[in-house]
Amino acid sequence: MSVHAKKNRSSSPLAQVVREYRDKYTLTQEQLANDLSIDVRTLRRWESGDTLLHDVRELRRIATLLGAEPERLGIAKSTYTILTVDQIDAVLHHVWELIHVARSYEANNLIERLLQDLNTQIVTENPVLLQKLAQALHLAGYVKSVITRANEASYSLNYYREMERVSRLIRNDTLLNIALTYEGDMYCRGGDIQKGITYLEAARDTTPKADVAARGNGIQLLGRAYLRAGRIDDFENVMALAEELSYQVDPQQSSTCGQYSPGTVYEEYGRSYTHLGDMQKAMEYLDKAEKSLEPTKHWEILIKTARAMALVRGGEIKSGAELAVESIEQCREHGTIRLMERIYGVQKYLDHLTREIGMVGATLREALDGPIEY
């Protein structure tokens, strides 16, 4: 085969899309093959151009999972069909998996692409497709909250508002509960605690048919809001209920897709007791959380940032600061910007401590040596 023929073969649309995707997200061939549920040898043949793929359904599946325009893989618009429910579910599952392994920017691009496809596809009030749209909005809001800072909470809030609208349209209490819960959480994140509590209490009180995972997740976040509002008794009461409900959730069927479990409740307790100044309880709960949560990169970073906060506030400043630096590096690498907010909190606390120590030191120096003469 001539050099020119080899070049054309390796420049096939599929080869280009696969290579670009791997380069953009710094993935190995093994990682991408696993994402696409194919053998790594097959991926290598695609990428090198040794194998040309002509199955339109398979090309459409690949385009969907890579967030690529089907036309880029040589599929004419007139020849590919709309996404099936199974295909939509496959993308939703894949994006949640990306979140679990902290591939946040990749997850964001894929869910944005899916939403574009769904909004184009849904032209009637088909309850099944509207349910999938609501689930995609839930995921889009969650992903956006992971990759943005607190002052950008409005980006996620917009998705959750639309999720609320769709959920009311199809009268689905579970999805409505999730929408109201995260609307409340975003208001709290943006600093409007009372408005956040209003939404979180509405999620608890106005969605009687919501499943246990949605209800428990909402109650856990309500506990967080109560703590921020200084309502300590209310915090203790609802967190006890959140812990009780978490043991009733089937992880394989959870409407929160792994974001609510005994481990997340323990982590919430750990951070909460850090802020309340009970470092022994904080560390005990963080230990329990680490043992309960799946050993994924997402939970690893979550626990690490929580430990950094607890160590610094507990007086182990050097150890806490070292852990905080590790956390910053991982947050930046994986796009978990929301968790960096915790480290900003650590820095703010240290700045406050430094000022206080400086003032106390100045008072002692003056008592020992007298006023400084100028």
Rank of each mutant, 00 (worst) to 15 (best):
P251Q: 03
Q194V: 10
N34P: 00
M309H: 07
I301K: 02
Q29H: 01
N109F: 00
A229M: 10
I219G: 13
L59Q: 05
L14F: 10
G335Q: 10
I111N: 09
Y105N: 11
G74A: 02
G67A: 05
E30T: 15
L53E: 14
N172A: 06
A63C: 06
A321E: 12
A367H: 05
R313K: 12
V40M: 09
A134G: 11
Q259V: 08
E290K: 14
Y349D: 13
T264M: 02
S11Q: 14
Y21C: 00
I197W: 01
Q16I: 15
D39G: 06
G184E: 03
S327Y: 09
G358D: 13
M1T: 15
T181V: 06
Q116S: 14
G258L: 01
C188P: 10
D351N: 07
E373V: 12
S78M: 02
Y285H: 14
D185C: 03
R271H: 00
E47N: 03
D23C: 08
D117A: 12
V212Q: 10
A136D: 04
S292D: 05
Q87S: 15
K288M: 14
R171C: 11
T198H: 10
S48N: 14
L52A: 08
N151L: 05
N237F: 04
E322D: 15
G370D: 01
R365I: 09
L110V: 02
R332G: 15
N34K: 14
D205R: 15
I301V: 13
V312T: 08
Q121F: 07
N172K: 10
S292T: 15
K297P: 08
R271I: 01
D369I: 04
T42L: 04
N177F: 00
Q131R: 15
V17Y: 00
L32E: 07
D250I: 12
I317R: 10
G270M: 07
W46A: 01
A289R: 06
E97I: 02
E71W: 00
G314K: 04
A203G: 11
S104C: 07
A90K: 11
A136V: 12
H334V: 08
F235P: 11
G358S: 12
Q248P: 04
V123S: 05
V312Y: 05
R171S: 15
R215M: 13
T120W: 07
S254R: 12
L32S: 06
E58P: 04
H54L: 04
P127K: 08
R228K: 14
S272K: 07
L32H: 02
L350T: 07
S104I: 14
K195S: 10
P371C: 04
D287K: 12
S246Y: 09
R313C: 00
I328S: 07
S246H: 13
A324T: 03
I301E: 02
L14G: 03
K288G: 01
I147G: 02
N108L: 09
T174G: 03
S246K: 12
A240G: 12
A134P: 13
P13H: 04
S12E: 00
D233H: 15
E243Y: 15
D55T: 05
E322P: 06
